[in-house]
Design a protein around this nucleic acid. Structure first.
Length: 1006
RNA sequence: GGGCCCGUAGCUUAGCCUGGUUAGAGCGCCCGGCUGAUAACCGGGAGGUCCGGGGUUCGAAUCCCCGCGGGCCCA
């Protein structure tokens, strides 16, 4: 086996999968229980980044895991292709600034074609870098697409169901609009777009009617809303004071008076009268812009003081200006008091002609003019700036405008109980995220599903032109065609889109002409019907019934108010239950400083870049293991290599080591079955066999709770700590020894462990595991499955598990560490053997440690390992000792002549090994060694340990004397001596070793 | 204004639910060692008022209260 080259093996493995059609075989049902997964469709817009990869890696990991447990997995892909995100980008591409331009300059047909083209473009990208390249085996050939006619029908279907249940209604309501995109936004969308914004902060005097120099002082950050002002609100139970300012009387909340005075820079003022808010109720005032906006002259009942609980006494003046057309609370208050709901702002954020002098101005332009006019009139007390959090369009960043308009709604507030009940049947991971979801559902509001856009599912609502109160809701294409008196000649995928749908005319027996409401549907409802639309569920009823409700979904935490909600909402509307059983809510991926990834900051790590740089499996390992799934993930590129690549390297080399010796000795797992050697196991064999089964069991426990990071860490710790660092270190001498067939015991145990490890790793690092499956398992068992991913996972074999042994082993390893620490303190290398180590502990502990004496002795390189209960044993000055947790470990300090000789021999061995490596010799190749030292001790040691040295370095001859021609010679410093060591292949072995025939006596080494 | 979560070494974190050895890792840093799979690795060391204060308790990183700081969500 070659050294690990991650990207190369990934490429090979991808090719292997493609050639053998492994993913399709993996997805093919085999009669097991069903694990149905529902793909949260990525928006086909923008390039995937590591945040997307995190989610997709979880999906793949979970699916592979369950597939290996014997489940049939349903792994259909899906794409979210419509909506504002796509439109916004197409507008940029076409250089369009307003919606009107789309209609007039571009034309809807071309615009929709461009949307389709853009989707196609990004789809290819997502298929490659966010799917294929990371080994995600979703079925993309049969992926659902929200732009298809067959899909859109289900959005219609659910809307019609809502209509039948009287949950669909149209209403007049104040909503946030994006003036640039010219559409309303849902609550969830508003949530996504809060940003800092600098706004004007103005204090305005409203002149009290009939009062002499009496004013209501109001504060606002949106001067333009004063255009549609209809009232002023006060808190009914707050105290208000009358401030005397330069001969005028201003009404201000008492609590805020001091602050307001400061803010306005008033030098002398006094609170001359205090009265309760309720006493202000009914006071009439003059609209400050009455002259500029004629329509206010007709609002006889308006422009008065009302009381409202929502009035804030924390900021402003305690008197709130009310524009029922521009604030949700204002709207409710206005409706309650019969005020006119004035909204002279059009959907594009420009005032219409009713706004008098403000007609034709944008809201910002109007704000400036308002300030100017009020200033001239002497009604502007102060005009400052303020930075506050304000909602912006989540797609294009434009500040939102609240205005009243007619829209269509789903009456979700009526379904609160049903939603909560549905959620009861859902397992939410991690648990902490459940609260959020629950509280969102508990306070859910009606859902504005209409959007004034183009590239989306058309709202299937038609109005009778003869009687506007009559509504017809269409639930399928078939139904549409049944009522159609005029149909454009296009395929269904087009028919269900604007502009074609707009030319459809319907006729029924009771109405000759139905006209479609000019809206499209909120995209969240598109993806929200995926549970049925993805499989065309009404036509494929049997399949649908098997899948529903889906076993598992997972997305990031922002989808709580997005997809997780829209799925459960649509499903509850149609059938009253949740469409999924388990939901794993992931945290977001941030940059390494914990900042959000954004184009603006330039800190986005894109999928393509990351995969090319690190390889898919190191990235997967890192994403799966570094943080708990529900936590934010601080992505640090430097860590990927450190954490993942090195671990994979170790695992790879464990397999290399095993393969090398197994091959050398002609090991065959079929001939040398583990069962034959069970009676001959060494203690460390028993231990590693126990460990691998314990890890298997613990892994499964963690997976039940989706504690993915801990599960994966557990595996890697086992591979690196237990298997590589401990087990292989212990068994190396047994593998080298040719005296008995004990090495086959090691091979049998090791093979068992490695094969199990591979299966455990397969869902984590699928390419890497497959490469080892092919190179290692299929090498020794050619008739094994063609892919590790098509095999069944092994269950933990409880008969192999020995918890007490594992516990004691851990203690023994700790003792070996303590001894290493003692050596470190004494300055004696591990290479040098020591005469005796003593462990002092309680009888019970000693009894358990007894079988592990040789393990500790080998790891610590001591001749004799003494267990003693009597603490006095090593209290003499002859011992160096350390103590921890009731155990004392000590080491006999003296190095006698025999030990010294042995140590020198080992020093020689080590030098020869280095030279073997330099000569690139195979592990089995024999050599001849000649040693010439100016130290009598070294010479004596070589002579005395000649056989030992020969065995260790695989030499057919160890000669004392000057190396001759044909030897590679190096001069080494061994314990102050100059020792020249010559190494060569035996002449009988044939050809010369290139570059090693020249004797270089003077070369210094070591 | 309300809700939820978090605060442990320079950085990233485990432990907290279920109180009990000397608070455990990884990275980085310093010193040493090992190396017939590994451009790998191993050992040791320095570095912690477990955010602050109060309480409960024989005993608190852990449970309770208050405060400070941060994040997310809702209004």
């Amino acid at each position: 086996m070659p050294p690990l080259d991650v990207r190369k093996i990934e490429e090979e493995v991808r090719e292997y999968w493609r050639k053998k059609g492994v993913p399709a075989k993996w997805r093919a049902p085999s009669g097991g229980k069903l694990f149905s997964f529902l793909e949260g469709p990525p928006t086909a817009n923008g390039y995937p980044h590591v945040g997307h990869l995190r989610g997709r890696v979880y999906k793949d990991f979970v699916l592979r895991y369950y597939r290996m447990l014997g489940y049939d997995v349903w792994a259909q892909g899906g794409w979210d292709e419509q909506g504002l995100p796509v439109e916004v980008e197409v507008e940029k591409k076409l250089g369009v600034r307003t919606k009107r331009e789309i209609y007039e300059r571009i034309g809807l047909e071309r615009f929709v074609e461009e949307c389709n083209k853009l989707v196609d473009y990004y789809l290819e990208y997502w298929k490659k870098y966010a799917t294929e390249m990371i080994g995600l085996w979703l079925d993309l050939d049969n992926a659902y697409e929200t732009r298809r006619g067959r899909y859109i029908e289900y959005v219609w279907y659910v809307i019609k169901r809502a209509w039948e249940r009287e949950l669909l209604y149209e209403g007049y309501r104040v909503l946030p609009f994006c003036p640039r995109c010219e559409t309303a936004l849902s609550d969830a969308e508003v949530d996504m777009g809060y940003e800092e914004k600098e706004s004007p902060s103005i204090y305005v005097k409203f002149k009290v009617e009939g009062g002499d120099g009496e004013y209501l002082l109001v504060w606002t950050t949106t001067p333009w809303t004063l255009v549609d002002n209809e009232a002023v609100a006060v808190h009914p139970r707050a105290e208000y004071c009358v401030m005397a300012v330069g001969g005028e009387r201003w009404y201000v909340a008492r609590n805020l008076a001091e602050r307001v005075a400061q803010e306005l820079g008033l030098e002398s003022w006094g609170c001359v009268e205090v009265l309760e808010g309720l006493r202000l109720r009914g006071m009439k005032y003059e609209h400050p812009l009455a002259n500029e906006i004629p329509l206010h002259a007709d609002h006889h009942d308006a422009h008065r003081v009302l009381d409202a609980e929502f009035v804030s006494l924390e900021e402003g003046t305690g008197l709130v200006h009310i524009a029922p057309g521009h604030g949700p609370e204002d709207f409710e208050l206005g409706v309650r008091h019969g005020l006119p709901v004035t909204s002279t702002v059009r959907i594009d954020g420009v005032f219409d002609e009713r706004a008098g002098v403000f007609g034709g101005l944008s809201v910002d332009g109007a704000s400036k003019l308002v300030v100017e006019i009020l200033s001239k009139k002497g009604l502007l007390v102060k005009c400052g700036r303020i930075v506050h959090r304000y909602p912006h369009c989540w797609r294009c960043g434009t500040p939102l405008v609240y205005r009243a308009d007619r829209q269509w709604f789903m009456a979700m507030s009526l379904l609160r109980e049903d939603l909560l009940k549905a959620l009861d049947s859902v397992e939410v991971f991690p648990r902490v995220h459940r609260n959020r979801f629950e509280s969102w559902l508990a306070s859910v509001k009606d859902w504005t599903i209409s959007r004034s856009r183009i590239w989306g599912t058309p709202l299937p609502v038609w109005r009778c032109s003869e009687d506007p109160n009559r509504i017809l809701v269409i639930g399928s294409v078939e139904e549409l065609k049944r009522y159609a008196s005029k149909l454009p000649d296009v395929d269904d995928d087009r028919l269900v889109h604007r502009p074609w749908i707009d030319s459809v005319e319907l006729r029924t027996s009771d109405c000759s002409r139905w006209v479609r409401e000019p809206f499209v549907v909120d995209v969240w409802l598109d993806s929200g019907v995926a549970w049925i639309a993805s499989v065309d569920g009404l036509r494929n009823r049997e399949l649908f019934e098997r899948l529903f409700p889906y076993t598992f979904i997972t997305e990031a935490v922002d989808q709580t108010r997005g997809w997780f909600y829209s799925l459960i909402a649509a499903s509850v509307i149609d059938r009253g239950v949740a469409p999924y059983r388990q939901v794993l809510i992931q945290g977001h991926v941030l940059d390494k400083f914990g900042r959000k990834m954004s184009k603006h900051l330039g800190n986005v790590v894109y999928a393509e870049e990351a995969i090319k740089k690190f390889g898919a499996d190191p990235l997967r390992l890192y994403l799966l293991s570094r943080y708990p799934p529900g936590d934010s993930f601080m992505f640090d590129p430097d860590e990927v290599r450190k954490v993942s690549t090195s671990a994979l390297n170790i695992v790879w080399n464990v397999f290399r080591f095993a393969a090398m010796y197994m091959d050398l000795d002609g090991f065959s797992p079929r001939v040398h079955e583990l069962s034959k050697y069970l009676g001959r196991l060494s203690i460390e064999d028993e231990w590693i066999l126990s460990r691998v089964n314990t890890v298997t069991a613990e892994f499964a426990d963690l997976m039940v709770r989706y504690e993915v990071n801990r599960a994966v860490q557990l595996l890697m710790d086992f591979a690196v700590e237990d298997l590589s660092r401990t087990y292989l270190k212990l068994v190396r001498p047994r593998v080298w020894s040719e005296e008995s067939d004990d090495r086959f015991v090691v091979y049998a145990a090791l093979y068992y462990v490695l094969k199990r490890l591979l299966k455990l790793l397969a869902p984590v690092v699928p390419h890497f595991s497959e490469a080892l499956w092919i190179r290692f398992v299929k090498h020794f068992e050619p008739d094994e499955a063609e892919s590790v991913h098509l095999t069944r996972a092994e269950r933990a074999d409880e008969r192999m598990r020995k918890p007490q042994l594992e516990e004691t082993f851990r203690r023994a390893l700790r003792i070996a560490e303590m001894l290493a620490s003692l050596r470190n303190r004494m300055g004696i290398k591990i290479r040098w053997p020591m005469r005796e180590a003593v462990v002092i502990a309680e009888e019970e502990v000693l009894r358990q440690l007894e079988p592990l004496r040789s393990v500790v002795a080998r790891l610590s390189n001591v001749k004799s390992m003494v267990l003693a209960a009597d603490p006095s044993v090593c209290q003499s000055g002859e011992y160096e000792s350390a103590q921890e947790g009731g155990i004392v470990a000590c080491l006999l300090k003296s190095v006698d002549r025999d030990l010294y000789m042995e140590a020198l021999a080992r020093e020689v061995v080590r030098r020869v090994q280095v030279m073997r490596k330099e000569m690139n010799l195979g592990v089995a190749e024999l050599i001849e060694v000649a040693i010439d030292s100016d130290s009598e001790d070294v010479t004596a040691a070589v002579s005395r340990f000649r056989d030992y040295i020969a065995g260790e370095v695989r030499a057919s001859e160890v000669r004392i004397g000057v190396p001759r021609d044909g030897y590679l010679v190096k001069a080494w410093d061994i314990e102050g001596s100059t020792t020249r060591i010559g190494v060569r292949r035996p002449p009988s072995s044939g050809e010369r070793i290139p570059g090693t025939t020249i004797t270089r006596d003077e070369e210094a080494g070591g």
